[in-house]
Amino acid sequence: MGMTATETRSTEPQIGRRRFLAWLSGLGIAGSAALGSLATFFFIRPRTTYGQPNRFKIGRPDEFPSGSRIAIDPKRVCIVREGNKVAAISTTCTHLGCIIAPSATGFQCPCHGSRFDVDGNVTGGPAPKALAWYAVTLTPSGELEVDKDNEIQTGTYLSV
């Protein structure tokens, strides 16, 4: 009897240590899994992209005569010129990303029939919001530069 009791007492700390180790390794593995997932997330989220730069030059102001609306499909912007005012309107449909084309009344999307007015406001179809306007600047070399990372308010023109 006494023997059993001694045994129980002597094994007690051992079990405690084991349990501690089990908790420790469990915690370690869970921690590694969490950190690993986080690291994987940052790994697969590209920091630089290989696609087109979002900031690009489009040419001199006089290449865009007054009253013209010239869509540059590869860049997915439409350059609008009215008098001495210039603006860049996105031609990526806000519905599901198809390329829209200028039409008589503004813009028209070929995918699900969204229509926009000349300022890019939705006039029909499933598109949920207006087309983005991008900041246009005049570089020292006298060329217009569009920055698609810089969305500005609808109706904001650059005077040239």
């Binding site: 519905h95 390329i99 995918c111 949920p128």
Partner: peptide, 26 residues
Amino acid sequence: VMHPPNPAKAPWYFLGLQEQVSYSAF
């Protein structure tokens, strides 16, 4: 990249989804 087919359609098993999307994207 310049010329989306008109209409641009998803695979058939997603066309129900695309049809729904044409009513409301979200």
